[in-house]
Design a protein around this nucleic acid. Structure first.
Length: 801
RNA sequence: GCCGAUGUGGCGAAAUCGGCAGACGCAAGGGACUUAAAAUCCCUCGCUGGAAACAGCGUACCGGUUCAAAUCCGGUCAUCGGCACCA
């Protein structure tokens, strides 16, 4: 026997698979289908990261097993290629970002192919391909048509030196990552998508989805539903502002109110504000901080009292001071709050600092010492007509009173904010809108899509903070499609998230030039049966794509209200030192090196064996060798083949192994499936031989994990055809059970002996058999037996005194 | 700070529903084969004491519930992911 030459074997089978197209999903819509999806990568300049194959291998195993189980499997791959890093690389190296993308994609594809994934490459997509982004633009036009895309003044990060808009990531400690200059908040008109319109459905529909629990929880908290009331406060200026509160019951305890520094009422009151200088300075200071810095709880509370205007508490007519403070955000709620220091921790801290009155309105705490936030117990006090009620009843009563008197109403509020959809960058989908002085925003006609990204000289943003597209006057200046007058194209582009919000639909029918995908293809393939991706995408990509899908469902484009039936998430692969892999830390492992030295099968096995799929795991170059040894030991089985089916001594083990591997794959526990196969291999070597029947089953079970090795051995052993044409093995549950089991015999919960009993033994028999064991007999000698327990197939516990 | 998660030998980890902690693998030590090395094969391998039998301790830390806790409850500490223009 020659030693296993993984290089030539892997090459041979990859060529064979490519020639026969055995992994192409079939367009026969009568077959049972399985749509298996992994997040498509961003083709970065660094090449494939060892983290990518973790997720891809796990679902490749699922896809390969499902095919053997008779499903028509769609397991596609593509490129999410628009985005900032490519653009920045292009600027730095004076290349076209499209060219950079072509290079990166070629490298990624070669790397992925070297790992033997069973992707259907005939359905490959690329978000930067005009034939693809035509449909991204088409969806945007539908959103615009339905009033879900609108323009709004928003604060952006502005580098005072580069004179351009920065992504949050490009702002490090308040300064520009590139030049180190100060970054300020600057207001710009931005395209927004009304995801908030879908907030309720995005939360409620989670209940019926098979998502891992932490994903559901994180999405729920991100959307942040809270029930309460809106209350209108009139001011001494005769105007008013509205606050949102989850505790309308405490309205009698509101002793001041706070507006966000950006609140436009301040400008309106300018002439009346005596300390306008101080107020303006504070507003300026806040403009430099991010929301994140502003809302940090343990920071010192800051704020400025507005001297000259007061608010009126609607429930008792009392005048209360108005502050501006940075912990109130314009982007959440109404940009104004009522402050109840007795019953809210932040308000309490603030009131203490500014010596404001603290009134107790719910009994049971000590509001002089700390805020009393418990609303389960305690009754209303100092609260007029609410006094004596429970908090829950007081909420109902006050909301009724507010609506009856036209001073407020019940309100459900969400933390979720609308999606900022504009980028002042080049490398993204152009927004298909024309701005006309007379007609306003005019959408392009569908027939003129795709609106192609034009060639520009330089990809640097302009000094005014506009996209580089703004420099192309020939492209920008157009006639208005509605009135024929002079008009300009929108020069902002879409964010990277746009293309990835619907890509799974395109895989169903990727070459369709009439529609996103045909109705039949969507009816058959959607929803995605299993979608795996990183935890870091939970609140953005995953939520955005659910939003777009629901919208497409509402306008009749897709047949299901949800895109993904099941969602799982993988942990990161860390460097050998346990830290995140990065160039700067110098702990990057290149998948190419592993494939070259050990082969794709070993790489796949190692990444699956590394530990719990959902948890982060550090890379270990020595542990890879263990998987290589396993591969070689499997290869060596061909030396000891004998004729026959399952031998009696291994029959139970074989059935248990089929059960274990089958179930573990479905539960994403490839690590324990591999451990079980290693144990079986050890067991086979103990017997000194393997029968053809046993080897067949073993190779079938191992095939999804190590496809090249198993195909080669299948061929060498002349088992007939190829593994890809076989049926997944089935187990007989009766044969999985042993007749006898070894159980523990405990005294007071401590193991004192192990005994072998029949699997079906009764409790009495098990206990008496335990008592007849010498050690147990000695241990209970002269003691009183308090209790005796038998846990079937596990243990006997005798409690003595 | 807020939201979500994690913490088990020298290392990666395993352990249906609360039921024998450490499966499987790596590293290490010892042995076989070899002129030698590599590869391969066999043995040992949580900690402490003991020649051994065995005993005690042990799943981040403190406390609780239970016949029984890695698992459930309360608290503490540490680490990681996300925080809306990175993808």
């Amino acid at each position: 026997m020659k030693s296993y030459d993984f290089k030539s074997v892997e090459k041979k089978w990859r060529q064979r698979w490519e020639e026969t197209g055995v992994f192409h999903a079939r367009n026969d819509y009568t077959l049972p289908k399985f749509y298996c999806l992994v997040e498509f990568p961003y083709p970065s300049g660094q090449g494939l990261h060892v983290g990518h194959p973790r997720s891809y291998t796990a679902l490749d195993i699922v896809a390969r097993k499902k095919r053997l189980q008779g499903f028509n499997v769609l397991y596609p791959m593509g490129w999410d290629a628009f985005g900032l890093p490519t653009e920045n690389y292009a600027i730095k190296n004076h290349m076209h970002p499209g060219q950079v993308t072509v290079q990166n994609v070629a490298r990624f594809k070669k790397q992925l192919q070297s790992l033997g994934f069973s992707f259907d490459w005939s359905r490959e997509i690329n978000t930067t391909d005009p034939e693809y982004y035509k449909w991204t633009q088409w969806i945007f036009l539908r959103l615009y048509e339905k009033g879900l895309a609108y323009k709004k003044e928003m604060a952006v990060n502005w580098c005072t030196s580069c004179k351009c808009v920065l992504a949050n990531e490009e702002v490090v400690n308040g300064v520009c990552e590139r030049c180190g200059s100060d970054v300020v908040r600057k207001v710009k008109s931005q395209w927004m998508l009304k995801i908030t319109e879908y907030a309720r459905r995005l939360i409620d529909d989670l209940d019926d989805l098979n998502y891992i629990e932490r994903v559901k929880i994180q999405q729920k908290n991100w959307i942040g539903r809270s029930e309460g009331a809106e209350v209108e406060f009139r001011t001494t200026e005769g105007d008013s502002f509205t606050v949102f509160t989850t505790r309308p019951d405490t309205l009698f305890g509101a002793t001041y109110s706070v507006l966000s520094p950006e609140n436009p009422l301040i400008d309106k009151w300018e002439a009346k504000i005596k300390n306008i200088g101080e107020v303006a300075a504070y507003r300026d200071e806040c403009a430099r901080k991010s929301d994140f810095e502003r809302t940090e709880l343990n920071k010192d509370k800051t704020g400025v009292r507005i001297d000259g205007v007061e608010a009126i508490n609607p429930v008792n007519g009392e005048k209360i001071p108005i502050f501006i403070a940075d912990y109130v955000l314009i982007s959440y709620g109404t940009g104004a709050i009522m402050a109840v220091p007795g019953h809210d921790t932040r308000d309490w801290d603030f009131a203490r600092k500014f010596s404001l009155p603290i009134i107790e309105v719910v009994s049971g705490g000590d509001v002089d010492r700390e805020a009393h936030t418990d609303c389960e117990t305690g009754l209303m006090v100092n609260s007029g007509f609410l006094t004596g009620l429970s908090v829950a009843d007081a909420k109902t009563e006050i909301i009724k009173w507010l609506s009856d008197n036209g001073k407020g109403a019940a309100k459900v509020s969400y933390k979720l904010r609308d999606w900022v959809f504009s980028r002042q960058r080049y490398w993204g989908e152009p927004i298909p809108i024309i701005c006309c002085g007379k007609c306003g925003h005019v959408p392009l006609d569908e027939s003129s899509l795709p609106l192609r990204l034009p060639e520009v000289e330089s990809y640097e943003p302009t000094d005014s903070g506009e996209s580089p597209l703004a420099k192309l006057t020939d492209w920008v200046n157009v006639k208005c499609p509605r009135c024929g007058g002079d008009a300009k194209r929108e020069t902002d582009t879409m964010p990277q998230w746009a293309g990835s919000s619907w890509y799974f639909l395109r895989y169903c029918d990727p070459h369709n030039d009439k529609e996103i995908a045909s109705g039949e293809a969507l009816d058959y393939w959607t929803p995605v049966d299993w979608y795996n991706g990183g935890m870091e995408h939970t609140t953005l990509h995953l939520l955005y794509s659910r939003f777009w899908h629901k919208f497409l469902y509402d306008i009749g484009v897709v047949p299901t209200p949800e895109p993904y039936a099941k969602r799982t998430s993988h942990g990161m692969i860390l460097g050998e030192n346990g830290e995140k892999m990065s160039k700067s830390r110098g702990n990057v492992v290149n998948p190419d090196d592993i494939v070259n030295e050990y082969g794709a099968d070993t790489m796949r096995l190692y990444e699956m064996f590394i530990g719990d799929f959902e948890k982060a795991a550090p890379w270990s170059s020595t542990s890879v060798k263990g998987c290589k040894r396993f591969v070689d030991r499997v290869w060596a089985l061909q030396e000891i083949i004998i004729k026959g089916e399952y031998r009696a001594e291994l029959e139970g083990d074989m059935h248990r192994l089929i059960k274990k591997v089958t179930e573990d794959i479905d539960n994403l526990k490839a690590n324990t499936a591999i451990a079980a196969m290693m144990s079986m291999l050890n067991r086979i070597y103990e017997t000194g031989a393997v029968t053809r029947g046993e080897l067949k089953t073993f190779l079938l079970l191992l095939n999804p994990f190590a496809p090249h090795l198993t195909e080669e051995m299948w061929e060498i052993c002349r088992f007939g055809g190829e593994v890809t044409g076989q049926k997944w093995p089935v187990f007989d549950s009766e044969k999985c059970v042993d007749e006898t089991v070894e159980i523990a015999a405990q005294i007071n919960g401590k193991v004192r002996a192990r005994i072998v009993v029949g699997a079906d033994i009764s409790a009495d028999e098990a206990i008496s058999q335990a008592k007849s064991d010498k050690k147990i007999k000695d241990a209970i000698e002269g003691k009183t037996i308090v209790k005796e327990l038998y846990v079937k197939g596990r243990l006997v516990n005798i409690v003595v005194k």
